Simulated scan of single mutants.
Amino acid sequence: MAVQQLAPLTLSDEERAELKSLTMRRKTAQALALRARIVLACAEGGQNREVAAKLGLDRSTVGKWRRRFVGRRVDGLHDEPRSGAPRTVDDARIEAVIVRTLESCPKNATHWSSRDMAKASGQSVSTVQRIWRAFGLQPHRMETFKLSTDPNFVAKVRDVVGLYVSPPEHAIVLCVDEKSQIQALDRSQPMLPMRPGQPARRSHDYTRHGTTSLFAALNIASGRVIGKCYGRHRAAEFRKFLDQIEAAVPRELDVHLVMDMCGRPR
Rank of each mutant, 00 (worst) to 15 (best):
R130L: 12
A235M: 08
D243Y: 00
K156H: 14
N152H: 11
A96Q: 07
C262E: 13
H209N: 14
M194K: 06
S203M: 04
S148Q: 09
G197T: 06
L163M: 12
D116S: 08
A92Q: 15
D75M: 05
G263L: 08
V255L: 09
L77F: 03
R82I: 14
R266P: 04
N219S: 06
A216G: 12
V258S: 09
V128A: 01
R67Y: 02
A33H: 02
S203G: 12
K240L: 15
D90C: 05
T127Q: 08
R239K: 10
G46R: 09
S104H: 08
T144D: 04
D205A: 14
A52L: 11
V3W: 13
C262H: 06
E169T: 11
V165A: 15
T101C: 09
D186Q: 13
T88N: 04
V89M: 05
R35K: 07
I94H: 01
L185E: 07
V173R: 01
R25L: 15
C42Q: 07
T88G: 14
D260I: 09
E80F: 06
T149D: 13
R264W: 11
L34Q: 05
L55M: 10
R68G: 07
R187F: 08
V128R: 00
G197D: 07
A235Y: 04
N152P: 00
A118M: 04
S222W: 01
K228R: 14
A120H: 02
H111M: 02
Y164E: 13
P106C: 04
L253R: 14
F153C: 15
A43P: 09
A43L: 15
S124V: 06
A43H: 06
Q198V: 14
S213I: 02
D79V: 09
V51L: 05
R49W: 04
F238G: 07
W65E: 10
S188A: 12
W112P: 06
L174W: 01
I38T: 07
D243S: 08
M194C: 11
H209Y: 11
A2K: 10
D13Y: 00
G46Y: 06
R16Y: 03
D90A: 09
R224M: 13
W132Y: 15
R115E: 14
A52D: 04
K228A: 13
R72C: 09
L174T: 04
N219F: 03
R87N: 04
D177R: 01
K119L: 13
V99K: 03
W112E: 05
S148R: 06
L242K: 00
A31V: 12
Q138G: 05
R72Y: 05
V39C: 03
L147A: 12
A134D: 15
S126G: 14
R224L: 14
F135P: 08
S114V: 11
W65G: 10
L185S: 02
A96E: 08
